[in-house]
Structures are given as C-alpha cells and as structure tokens.
Amino acid sequence: MVTGEAIAVLANPGAGRGRHRAVLPGLVRQLGDSGYDVQVLHAPTAEAAEQACHRAVADGAAALVALGGDGTVHLALQAVAGARIPFGVVPTGTGNDFAAAVGVPAEPLVAADAVAAALRDGRQRRIDLARVSDAEGRGRWFGAVLAAGFDAIVNERANRMRRPKGPRRYDLAIMLELARLRPRAYTLVLDGQTHEFPGVLVAVGNCASYGGGMRICPDADPADGLLDVVVADPLGRVTLARLKPRLRSGTHVTDPRVHSYRAREVVITAHDIVGYADGERIGPLPLRVGCVPGALRLLS
C-alpha cells in the first residue's frame, strides 16, 4: 500500500533500452531527500502497471512519478488525470514527446531533481489533457497526440508483424503501407461543425509532437484549453515521403495541402483505421476527443 507519506514511482524497465536502470537509484534518493518515503511500482505487464498506478492513487499517495517514455506516461495518466495527486515525469524513453512539450528537462537526473524540488516547494502547474472515447463509450486519457491517418495505419501494421525486431520492423511497415497508400474518406466534426474530405493524414494534438520529436501539430499548446487538428489532402507516395521529414521542424503545415484547425471537441470517422494516442493503440474509428483543461497537476 502506498500511503500519503509515500511517493509512488512507475518505472518501465524497457524504456530507452534500459536507461532507467542508471537513473532509478538517483531518482529514489532525490525524492527521498524531499522528506517522503518512495515506493517503486513493480509490474510485469502494461495492464498491471496501470492497475498499480490506480491503487497508488486510491491509497492516497503523495505523488506519482513516471520514469520512462510516452508509453509509461500514458499508463500513469489513466490514474492521475482529474485527480488531486500531483504527477512528475522523468524522461528515459525512446520518445519523450509529452515531457518535452510540458518543459521537463531532457536529462533524466536533472528532471528528477526538478521533480524533487517541486515536491519540497509544493509547486504544481495545471496542464491540459485529452480524453478519447470509442463508439461504445470506453475512454482513455492521452497527453500528446492522437494519430488517425497514415501513421496510425503504419503502427497497426507494425504491431501485427513478428519480425524483424526493433526499429527495422517499423521501417518495413512504412514501406509496405506506402506501397498501398490511398486516401480515406473522413468525416471530422469540430465543435459541432462537420467537415467531409478525402485525406491521408489526420492528427489531434494536445501537444506538438509524437514519434520522438515529429512536430505534427507544431502550434499545439497543452495549456490553452484547445486541441490542434492537422489533416493532409490526398498525397502520392513520393509527395508523402518528401513531406514526412518536414515534421521534425513542423514546417509541413505551410504546405497548401496541409490544413490546421483548433477545437475543444473533435469527432473523427473513417473506415478501417485504428487510432493511436501517445503511441498506444486506442481502437477503431469513430473516436471522440475532448480537451479537459487543467486535468493534470504537474510537478514542475
């Protein structure tokens, strides 16, 4: 049991190819110096990790800290979103898009020190989160970006593949999906206003980037109470391949075939597409996404 005198730490042993192993002892020490006991949540699966976070919050933990990447943050958000418990992030993942967007230092031990200082000083900052629901009303929180176009299709393909292992599987999935690229018929409802269009790329961002720094929604601000929506018209294989590198700088939105919107609530409908948020599988479209202002109390 994690009591109100303890800080719970969710550590992903696989994040960033095991980077957390070198960081965890220092993080525990720094948090302990804040005057709290520290309990590391050990869980063999993602489902067990999420359940452990919920138990820690229910037991009245003083704070929850995620040590890992966007996937680890995603699991922890399910427990702390909308709750009074403060949340800290120490980025050690391959992709740390949420941490970067909310100003967490990239160096893990510096981030750990910032979390410990915020605990000592009682310093918290309110951050928006997004809430996504499927057609049956099942909901998930996410912090960074929901992908519902080509990138989501690639993720779904890669998750079905058993080999090759590692990043090469994702690269192969991109090649396979580029070969069968075709526009999809989308219906997008933004704050009640309906847009119908063919497209190849749809993303809904609470934060600017996904995939380890691809700034798909470059103007997204996780403290403005709005979601940024970026869509791309039908594009050929060569054009899409040339556009993708521009995501690193966010300059793709200057292309006349790319369109940006802002809304408090977004409903996305298309056939045969599974949405992914924070890199995690959410479920088939249609999906409803709403911005929940100040849903997270960030230790910062």
Rank of each mutant, 00 (worst) to 15 (best):
A11I: 11
A11C: 14
G14P: 00
A15M: 01
G16T: 05
G16A: 08
G16Q: 10
A22W: 11
L31A: 11
G35M: 09
Q39H: 14
H42V: 14
A43N: 02
A46V: 13
A48M: 04
A49K: 00
A56M: 02
V57F: 04
G60Y: 05
A63D: 04
V65I: 03
V65Q: 02
A76Q: 00
A76V: 12
A79H: 04
A81E: 00
G82Q: 07
A83T: 15
R84H: 14
F87H: 08
G88H: 12
V89W: 11
T94M: 07
N96A: 10
N96D: 11
A100R: 15
A101D: 15
V102T: 08
V102P: 08
A106S: 14
A106R: 15
E107D: 15
P108H: 13
A112C: 10
A112Q: 09
D113G: 13
A116S: 13
A116K: 10
A118M: 07
G122C: 05
R123P: 00
Q124S: 09
R131W: 13
V132K: 02
V132L: 13
V132E: 05
S133D: 05
E136F: 07
R138Q: 14
W141T: 01
G143M: 09
V145F: 02
G149D: 08
A152V: 06
A152K: 09
N155G: 09
E156C: 11
N159H: 15
R160C: 09
R162I: 00
P167V: 09
R169Y: 00
D171G: 06
M175F: 15
E177P: 02
L178C: 04
A179T: 03
R180G: 02
R182A: 15
Y186Q: 04
Y186D: 01
L188Y: 06
L188V: 10
L190C: 01
D191I: 10
P198N: 12
G199H: 11
V200E: 00
V202Y: 04
A203K: 02
A208D: 01
G211S: 03
M214Y: 11
R215V: 04
I216F: 00
P218L: 03
P222T: 03
V230F: 02
V230C: 07
L235I: 02
L235P: 00
L235D: 00
V238F: 12
R242H: 11
R242W: 06
P245Y: 06
L247P: 02
L247I: 08
R248L: 14
G250V: 06
V253A: 02
V253P: 06
P256Y: 08
H259S: 12
Y261T: 07
A263Q: 08
E265H: 13
V267H: 11
I268W: 07
D272P: 02
D272S: 13
I273K: 06
V274I: 15
Y276R: 11
Y276S: 10
G279M: 07
G283A: 04
L285S: 01
L285F: 09
P286N: 08
L287W: 05
C291E: 03
S300F: 05
